[in-house]
């Protein structure tokens, strides 16, 4: 039962943080949406479609941030065998997958009016697509192995191999697209961003970060519960009758 001492502490900490994170999310989202729609100018080139940026860029940032959370959790789980770390990786993965999918979808919807096409095989899009595959692979591996502890550590190994690969993939596809495509693809980081657009962007990024904190803590508590239930089931199966 010593393993529960830690999670109990974690649950208390989570319960202390959750109201603040929820409050921060509501405030940041409200302010962010207000600035995004009412207090920022349309772009002189992109017009009103630039407003997609305020949800696209935060999603892309969070997609990478969440993978780093997952990777650090995996490393901690493999090296120090911390029982909560395995659960942290598992809790983070679906959130990261959703952020990644949203970064791709909003990017496509922004790309269609700007580039004239939903999809180009440019470096950024391709490497984010690979990131989505890594998330899906991580979750599939958790699902595929029955024994939770083993499943988690196998998925952790995969997450760490993915970490090594992400910069390589990023670098290779950047290089690849410049080989095959002339500079027809508009660079997002081309024009330096104006303060009036930076404000809503940062507010929305903050809102996404707070959203992550809230849902991540919920999912951590959920994973702790699931682990407790699994252990309880095992105990009741193996313990001789009346031994408790």
């Amino acid at each position: 039962m010593h393993r529960f001492a830690n999670p109990a502490q974690f649950n208390r900490l989570a319960d202390a943080i959750l109201p603040w994170a929820t409050g921060a999310f509501v405030l940041l989202l409200g302010a962010g949406l207000y600035y995004a729609f009412f207090d920022s100018p349309p772009d002189y080139q992109q017009g009103e479609s630039v407003r997609v940026m305020y949800i696209h860029v935060p999603a892309a940032w969070m997609a990478m941030f969440t993978y780093m959370v997952m990777a650090v959790a995996s490393f901690t789980a493999l090296v120090w065998r911390h029982p909560l770390a395995l659960l942290a990786g598992r809790a983070a993965a679906p959130i990261g997958a959703v952020f990644t999918a949203l970064a791709l979808i909003t990017g496509m919807l922004w790309g269609k009016p700007m580039w004239g096409t939903y999809w180009v095989w440019d470096g950024r899009l391709t490497s984010v697509l690979v990131l989505l595959f890594l998330y899906l692979g991580y979750m599939a591996l958790w699902q595929a192995i029955d024994e939770e502890e083993k499943a988690g550590r196998a998925a952790s190994i995969l997450a760490l191999v993915g970490v090594v690969n992400i910069p390589i993939i990023k670098f290779s596809v950047d290089w690849w697209s410049t080989l095959h495509q002339p500079a027809s693809v508009m660079r997002l980081d081309g024009p330096t961003i104006d303060g009036s657009m930076l404000m809503p962007l940062l507010l929305m990024a903050g809102a996404y970060q707070a959203y992550f904190a809230v849902v991540f803590l919920w999912r951590m508590k959920l994973e702790i519960n699931r682990r407790k239930l699994a252990v309880a089931r095992q105990v009741s199966m193996h313990a001789p009758v009346g031994a408790e």
């Binding site: 349309p42 017009g47 009103e48 479609s49 407003r51 997609v52 949800i55 696209h56 999603a59 679906p94 959130i95 959703v98 999918a101 949203l102 979808i105 909003t106 919807l109 922004w110 269609k112 009016p113 959203y211 809230v214 849902v215 919920w218 999912r219 959920l222």
Partner: peptide
């Protein structure tokens, strides 16, 4: 500014996905 379908689909999809994830969690 004529980009309604793109802008609102992007916001709608994001809201739907994030709400779904939060609610199901």
């Amino acid at each position: 500014g004529g980009y309604a379908s793109f802008v609102w689909t992007a916001y709608g999809t994001s809201a739907a996905a994030l709400v779904w994830l939060a609610v199901s969690s």
